[in-house]
Nucleic acid binder design. Structure first.
Length: 513
DNA sequence: TCCGGAAGAC
DNA sequence: GTCTTCCGGA
């Protein structure tokens, strides 16, 4: 009944050349087969109307009630060739599903359990994620009992586990992929989930959605012909190519199995789910999956985008060598730009210097320009304290001006300012000697002159040339208005010089301000 | 009625 | 790994 292909076992059904992986094979005609899992068997029974008196959907999504536990156990025993099977043992097997989260008990209701389709689909279709997150999600899923109502394509794709020569289009591969990914998880279906039944299931779903189709055996009719796994999906008309996780669900059984007798609560949702047009290879305008290259292209594009968005490995792409998947748009270097041209229109510029940093070069510059303004310290030496303060203010003032210039330059050419700012104060500094140059050129530096005159005045005073202070005052008052006589006293001349020097100094300070 | 541990079969 | 069988306990 089955043959081996390497490690994989494929069932050759009825000698028709249709092969299925062993895990997908669930021959109903072989009651003794132990390649079936209990949950699958339960689903089988739930599909069959003739067992509605034994087991049936009831209550919430995925919830079913075992109306006749002994009969279910007997049927299970028949299937597994365990005549000693009873409900206690069967229920023990069901309880093992609790930990696997395939099934859980509906508390307070006798013989009532609830399927967790999330887990079931994840086990059998691990590349289909039944997430609860919002967003565009394919709804080609049965209602999820545990909250999620949609299927969502996960980041994991079959190509993650596909070898290069494996074609995703093969349902066998789909199944094997699922099995590989599910192995060790909950139930690897290694004992027989029938792919053909899944296809039939999907077909039956189409029946349910679109109504019976005369040329296709209805779910109540005889078994559908088994299909070669290589072309199992191609056999069906394009609009009927199923990839929906649940239309190709493990619920389907080959042969005369009925379509899933869904829980009343879940049936409408099941029948009306509409897969996402963006994230699933849906048939355009349809509500089912499709392996059509165009559909796959759209799906892959969306998936590719998600791959990049979520930093997934590009290897997560489905193996569709014939399809050129449009790459997602990413900000890349414009190709038209010359290689040496920076990729950005605006240069990345260093941030403007901080006040301290901006003052620092100025301070350095001031120190460097101290040579040019070396006269200033001499002025500072002046006993007049105001001169020092004014000088300091002057320095601050110059600094502020340079800041303004610098700020402008920062926006124009950030790298220049330091070079520009530096010379800018310099001319002002250079102007000082130039402006003061003529003055200093005329005579000795002002302060020195002032000092010399002061000392000379002191010396003359010490000589007693001018004894009376009132005279001095009078003389100063006269000096301002009286033209010094050529043959006047030396003290009067000195006073005149002093006043002149004082005036020059005050004028100089004003100019510098 | 249900639960879950344990051991074993396959 | 998935039951099957057995069993004690809640």
């Amino acid at each position: 009944m089955f043959c081996h292909r390497g490690k994989k076992r494929y069932h050759n059904v009825c000698g028709q050349g249709f092969a299925f992986p062993d895990w997908a094979y669930k021959p109903e005609s072989s009651p003794g087969s132990r390649q079936i899992q209990l949950w699958h068997f339960i689903l089988e029974l739930l599909r069959k109307e003739e067992y509605h008196d034994v087991i049936a959907w009831q209550g919430d999504y995925g919830e079913f009630v075992i109306k006749d536990p002994d009969e279910v156990a007997r049927l299970w025993g028949v299937r597994k060739c365990k005549p000693q099977m009873n409900y206690d043992k069967l229920s023990r097997a069901l309880r093992y599903y609790y930990n696997k989260r395939i099934l859980h008990k509906t508390k307070g209701k006798r013989f009532t359990y609830k399927f967790n389709f999330n887990k079931l689909v994840l086990v059998n279709y691990p590349f289909i994620d039944m997430g609860m997150a919002g967003g565009p999600v394919p709804q080609s899923a049965p209602p999820v009992p545990s909250g999620g109502t949609h299927f969502r394509f996960p980041s994991c794709t079959p190509s993650d586990v596909l070898s290069p020569n494996e074609d995703l289009r093969s349902p066998t591969l789909y199944s094997s992929v699922a099995r590989r990914l599910a192995r060790g998880s909950v139930s690897d279906c290694s004992d027989g989930t029938s792919a053909n039944s899944e296809v039939e299931e999907s077909l039956n779903e189409e029946h349910l959605r679109r109504g019976p189709i005369p040329d296709i055996p209805a779910f109540r009719g005889p078994p559908l012909p088994r299909l070669a796994h290589e072309g199992i999906f191609r056999v069906y008309p394009r609009p009927r190519e199923p990839l929906s996780p649940f239309p190709v669900s493990p619920m389907g059984a080959p042969g005369s199995l009925l379509p899933p007798q869904l829980s009343p609560a879940m049936t409408p949702n099941h029948m009306n789910y509409t897969p996402s047009p963006t994230l699933s290879p849906m048939y355009p305008g349809g509500n089912h999956f499709s392996f059509n290259p165009e559909d796959m292209k759209r799906y892959l594009q969306a998936h590719t985008q998600s791959v990049y968005n979520y930093h997934l490995s590009p290897r997560a792409f489905l193996h569709y060598p014939s399809i050129v998947v449009p790459q997602p748009q990413r900000p890349e270097k414009p190709l038209h730009l010359p290689p040496d041209e920076p990729p950005f229109k605006f240069k990345l510029q260093p941030p403007p210097l901080g006040r301290k940093q901006r003052e620092r070069p100025i301070g350095a510059e001031s120190s460097s320009s101290s040579s040019s303004s070396s006269s200033v310290p001499q002025i500072k030496v002046e006993p007049i304290s105001d001169a020092e303060e004014e000088d300091e203010d002057l320095m601050v003032e110059v600094t502020d001006i340079s800041e303004e210039e610098e700020d402008e330059d920062v926006f124009k050419a950030p790298t220049v300012p330091e070079q520009k700012v530096l010379p800018s104060p310099l001319p002002s500094r250079d102007e000082e000697p130039q402006s003061a140059g003529p003055e200093s050129g005329r005579c000795i530096p002002l302060k020195l002159r002032f000092k010399r005159r002061w000392s000379e005045d002191q010396r003359l005073e010490a000589e007693g040339s001018c004894e009376d202070s009132d005279k001095k005052v009078r003389g100063e008052q006269e000096e301002t208005h009286v033209v010094p006589q050529s043959g006047g006293a030396p003290c009067r001349r000195v006073s005149t010089d002093l006043q002149r020097a004082t005036e020059e100094l005050s004028l100089e300070n004003r100019d510098s301000q």
